[in-house]
Design a protein around this nucleic acid. Structure first.
Lengths: 161, 161
DNA sequence: TATTGTTATACTCTATAACTATA
DNA sequence: TATAGTTATAGAGTATAACAATA
């Protein structure tokens, strides 16, 4: 039995604005570190995603990072020319390629990622675990519904389902 | 008397991931609307920021939208060629220019913005006001600290101030 | 001298779609 | 026929810095 509220823009807009502001503040902080290493945010995203894995296919990588395949080829090309990642053939499907960190890429990941986490973790020192888990819950439910809505672009569809 | 917790990455990383996922889901949903109007997200950002105002200077606009001045000139040029915004001279400083919506831009804003809000509001129907305000609080405190950290890039600075 | 906005450059990302080689 | 990744293209945002006009 879920209670039903009709939120007004006046109520939820501050949350959206703060969501954007928070994400952008995080991104901007994160990217200032990242750019000082000679990486773009997209490139760092790839490194962080591949860290502590044996690599993954272009398809998987694209799904995790939300980068489309056409763009991904370019990003991986640039990281390859920096010797941070490499392509290897996938074992059971010759159409497929595995992207993985090189030794150099792993070393970079090992050097910068823990420091990143340590730094970021400081932001959470005065947030209670309870607030954190509530915020997580709220963010999750928002995400779920935004994703739903993104699929059902035509409101009329709701009537047809 | 604020209690002190030391959060571990295992605790806060899910929140960061969900923050990114939530923002990106929102952005992607929002931008699918926006692109169907022939606008990019940056361009919509400008329109939404100028809506219900008498216009503002390049400087103000850049601060609100987090677009740097060099880029902003290009974005405004494109919106100008679409006849959605216009530049006018600022009254008391002849270096400065005011950007404002044209009649056409205002009409577009009036047509799409309420619909946008209405659509987005649906996502909040099953979130309680309490959770919403807690999430807002948490987001705010995170934002504040990310911004702080972004400024103090050199930790050593803290000692010098 | 400092500030506002413009211009210029080089790079990166995006959307889109045609293409290849496999499956 | 469908899928994985590549290539090509045109447009748009980014960082950076030099520049003109004005304060």
């Amino acid at each position: 039995m879920i209670p039903y509220w009709k939120m007004t823009p006046k109520e939820f807009l501050p949350v959206l604005r703060e969501l954007a502001r928070c994400y952008q503040a995080f991104e901007s902080y994160s990217s200032s570190h990242v750019r000082s290493l000679g990486l773009t945010p997209s490139q760092f995203d790839i490194i962080a995603t591949l860290g502590n894995t044996d690599g993954m296919t272009f398809k998987q990588l694209g799904e995790k990072t939300l980068i489309t395949k056409g763009t991904l080829t370019g990003v991986i090309d640039r990281l390859t020319s920096k010797k941070l990642v490499q392509r290897i053939a996938a074992p059971h499907d010759r159409r497929s390629q595995i992207v993985q960190l090189t030794t150099e890429g792993e070393a970079l990941f090992a050097r910068i990622f823990p420091a990143h986490l340590e730094h970021i973790g400081g932001a959470f020192d005065h947030v209670t675990p309870e607030d954190l888990s509530k915020a997580l819950g709220t963010l999750c439910s928002l995400t779920r519904i935004f994703k739903q809505e993104a699929v059902e672009t035509q409101p009329a569809r709701i009537l047809n389902n």
